[in-house]
Design a protein around this nucleic acid. Structure first.
Lengths: 352, 352
DNA sequence: CTGAAAGCGCTTACAG
DNA sequence: CTGAAAGCGCTTACAG
């Protein structure tokens, strides 16, 4: 209809080829940097392309069998400092290598996770990093419905040539970067026991997360190893957020007013605990010690500065991307991270 | 060669059409929800599609003229709380509407910004949100090279039908969400003047950012309106980070040891200032007051809790996405945000 | 309402 | 090293 389209369409590879006086095939080879073109011709084509402002159509490329230059990243919540740091690490690597990152949030909803993976597959993303805890299996049987669905989805993704690495999630037959949750929990508990604490309470995140389970296991092991009875330690669960931490602290302290230490299973919860305790006039660490987990950037600037376990979050993101870029191994790879106890001002010996 | 490909290829729309006993065209209409199919046929096709696990190939769709279901988001740094909150807002909206988000970091490098936009255009992204300050024009001429390049890129993007909204950036002929930087700066300054401060210093971010310029302008206006001489106020520049804030504070305090208030132009810098001052044994706010800007999540949990200007960051992300989803107006739209002074513990009257 | 056919912009065997 | 041609998996006029 319209002789002159109102929206000028961008130049295509044919336009480049014509302008450079070569065939489409040659132009394609020159632009993708593949072999089979003389260096001079390639250089000439590239010069022409940049002169006329040619930008390859990635959809046509992907459809024709070229590589998809996008990697997928699934996190629970980009605003959370833990995932923010991981995302920063992944993005940094991603961009170095000329990929673009497709990011999704799932807010810890297993069904949203499945939906996101499917959406990513619709975009033929072959490289995928999933950060965030997995879910504890139902006690009664092998696996919950959500678990089984996820495992099936993952199997079908990798069977179709997809590469997936998870961060902080086991139970999935793929490459994994595993933060040192259990060992970190144990280190933290030894620190508190060494200080003299015996009556302590735990602020757990959602009880169905394996991360919570693992950190608890570490605490329990070290507590038992000191000859103490873990059954004396109250654990209350709440959201892995500042608000969740404050609410859980309220419940914990009302039921057990005599605790000398509160162990939060991530930093935002610990910040919530500090806020609740300080507002209530409790002195930290004078009357009660508080610890976190992760060493998010906020940990060193809160009052009092938080004793916590440092995990190399941005590095974990980078590692996951490295795994995904590598061809699959015979069996899933596991990269265990280090952890480091960071002692700051929020812990001290209990008062006699 | 291989009779049985080792990687099973996913079902295509033809497979769905065949299994449902309809033509390709009908299957396509049923799957995209377009008109021209009877409701029964559409339902049947959809049922078949889901039974055989069909996932549409988004590249083929995009190439054939369907919609690209991705939106681009460009930020300076996802790990920074300001951009983390904005990203959270954009992603939330994005996912509600069934889009996927392509996120890029530019680390405040104008050339990286250009490269990212081009990469996004290669993916035929039509919807784009760019968050982060623009750059101050060179004093000598109309615009710097980077500025001109960006304006040209943006014009060409929108001319080709692309929709772009910026957050916190003027000087670009597109829809914009503009945080209340100047007014916020003025509010903050009035707060400090009201408290009795006269000798204050400013911790500016990179001097080439319009955000810095605008916040400074607000401070200056309110200072002048109180009959005070702005030339008496030292301004030192540094990175918009905790480290940048600490370093700038060191320079500021060495040159002007008698200041009674330090005004940081974003929260991370203020946190750095607190850290430097407290480490040096200064009492905040007893000896010296400190203020931030943005009200990032960290602001209320640092010691002492930060007096700052609250900007609705997640809401700004949502608004930008709304703008981009709307057809373009005759002239660029401007959405000015509100701001709110949040008085916490880091400010007090100066000592007599 | 339904179908046959063209075409979106590339890449990659296949020939030369 | 270079080119002509097929094909990737869809959508959308164009006919019926």
């Amino acid at each position: 209809m319209a002789e002159r389209p109102s929206v000028p369409s961008p130049p295509r590879l044919v336009d480049v080829a014509r302008a450079a006086g070569v065939s489409l095939a040659t132009a394609s080879r020159a632009m993708t940097g593949s072999t089979g073109v003389s260096a001079e011709v390639a250089a000439h084509v590239q010069a022409v392309a940049s002169r006329i402002g040619y930008v390859p159509n990635s959809h046509a490329r992907a459809l024709a069998g070229g590589q998809v230059s996008m990697v997928g990243l699934i996190v629970h919540d980009v605003g959370d400092p833990y995932f923010g740091e991981i995302a920063r690490g992944v993005l940094h690597e991603t961009e170095l290598r000329g990929y673009l990152a497709l990011i999704s949030q799932t807010q810890r909803d297993p069904r949203a996770e499945l939906a996101r993976i499917r959406a990513l597959r619709a975009h033929r993303v072959r490289l995928l990093v999933m950060a965030g805890s997995g879910y504890v299996r139902a006690a009664s049987q092998g696996s919950t419905g959500a678990d089984a669905d996820m495992a099936a989805e993952v199997r079908s993704f990798t069977a179709a040539g997809g590469r997936l690495a998870v961060i902080g999630r086991h139970h999935l037959p793929v490459d994994a970067v595993l933060p040192d949750n259990a060992a970190g929990g144990a280190t933290l508990m030894r620190h508190l026991i060494g200080l003299g604490h015996r009556r302590l309470g735990v602020l757990g995140g959602p009880p169905n997360l394996t991360t919570v389970e693992d950190r608890l296991a570490g605490l329990r092991t070290a507590f038992g190893a000191a000859g103490l009875d873990w059954r004396s330690v109250p654990v209350v669960h709440g959201d892995f957020t500042r608000e969740g931490g404050a609410a859980a602290t309220a419940r914990l302290m009302r039921a057990h007013p005599d605790l000398t230490a509160v162990v939060a299973l991530n930093d935002p919860m610990a910040v919530g605990a500090l806020s609740w305790l300080l507002n209530g006039g409790r002195r930290v660490p004078g009357e009660i010690s508080v610890t976190g987990f992760d060493d998010a950037p906020v940990a060193r600037d809160v009052y009092p500065a938080l004793t916590t376990i440092r995990l190399p979050m941005a590095g974990m993101g980078k590692q996951a991307l490295d795994l995904v870029l590598r061809p699959p191994a015979g069996r899933p790879r596991r990269r265990r991270t280090s952890h480091e106890l960071v002692v700051r001002a929020s812990t001290a010996a209990p008062r006699a």
